[in-house]
């Protein structure tokens, strides 16, 4: 028995480093975490039930629930969840380093043997774990969709993987700003600003640029496919990427591949689906953000000696 405990301890110490252990313990000891979970579930539950109620009312009180409507409801809940993640991720991560700095605990941590990578990654993983817990806690809400059919468990799995990836991306940006800016308030504002740009700004830019390009193409007699490159703007948008998971045709539409020369239908396929391009772009951005955060958390002590 003692051997089993010792083995478990050994594995625990390998998997959970001290900073991660501390983050887990302290996060779950605050009442704030419980309230965050409660309000998140309340928000998503109310929206899901509200949607169900409105749909049933609008279908003239019919007792049956159409599987198509169930699919739309699934998409609706998925977008609500994505919105809540976008709201939560910057708030949970943008203060993790600057907060330690403001509480005057960071210097103590930096004089230990913990590496910068261990500190940054542990804090990111801890925040993401809490967000993953919250999203997993919404599973019962999704079970409403399963009651009516129209959605496969595979699709649900894909959506959750997409959520966790989006959390990782937004969390990485949050932790980067938390490292770069000394004040948590500033880090949070910048993190929310970037999130707003990624969700709203890229969509707005896409619309504006597509209008301009359409005007220009029309006057020069070109084909809509000539400015298909503007679709890459939407590859930065998590909402568009999520929708492309539900509707693969969206990618063709975004890259203007459904319209060939003279408005004829094109049979070409995009090299990558919008969500695949999203994964590639954001994977690079995540790595860049995390590496920059790791380099910035401690002062660069050896820059002089290198120069020398």
């Amino acid at each position: 028995m003692k051997g089993t405990n010792g083995c478990a301890d050994k594995w625990r110490s390998r998997l959970i480093n001290p900073v991660l252990g501390k983050e887990f313990t302290l996060r779950m000891r605050t009442v704030r975490s419980m309230w965050a979970l409660f309000f998140y579930l309340l928000a998503i539950g109310l929206l899901a039930l509200g949607y169900l109620y409105v749909t049933r009312m609008s279908s003239s009180g019919a007792n049956a629930f159409n599987p198509d409507e169930s699919r739309i409801m699934f998409i609706f809940i998925s977008f609500v969840q994505l919105g809540l993640i976008a709201f939560m991720a910057p708030g949970l991560t943008a203060g993790v380093i600057s907060g330690e700095r403001e509480k005057q605990t960071l210097n103590l941590l930096l004089t230990t043997q913990q590496s910068s990578a261990s500190i940054v990654i542990s804090k990111l993983v801890s925040s993401l774990s809490f967000m993953a817990l919250i999203t997993l806690a919404t599973m019962p809400v999704y079970s409403i969709v399963f009651l009516f059919g129209g959605i496969s468990p595979g699709q649900l799995g894909m959506v959750f993987l997409f959520y966790w990836f989006t959390m990782l991306a937004l969390g990485s940006f949050g932790i980067l700003f938390s490292t770069l800016f000394k004040r948590t308030m500033l880090a949070v504002i910048v993190a929310y600003g970037i999130t707003l740009f990624l969700f709203g700004g890229t969509a707005f830019l896409y619309l504006i640029v597509s209008q301009i390009m359409e005007e220009m193409t029309r006057s020069s007699g070109g084909a809509p496919g000539d400015f298909g490159w503007i679709g890459h703007l939407l590859a930065l948008n998590p909402g568009a990427a999520l929708y492309s998971l539900f509707d693969p045709e969206m990618t063709r539409w975004v890259f203007r591949m459904n319209m060939g020369s003279g408005g004829s239908l094109s049979t070409g396929q995009p090299a990558l689906q919008l969500w695949q391009e999203f994964l590639i772009i954001y994977s690079i951005l995540i790595i860049a953000a995390v590496l920059t955060a790791i380099r910035s958390v401690r002062p660069r002590l050896n820059k002089k000696s290198k120069r020398a």
């Binding site: 001290p18 501390k22 313990t25 302290l26 605990t105 210097n107 103590l108 230990t112």
Partner: peptide
């Protein structure tokens, strides 16, 4: 340091365990 913070939700022993592990 002259000014420092502590992790308030830790017990004294846990606090030292954390730094010891670090």
């Amino acid at each position: 340091p002259d000014f420092f913070g502590v992790y308030d939700q830790f017990k004294a022993t846990e606090y030292l365990h954390f730094y010891g592990a670090s």
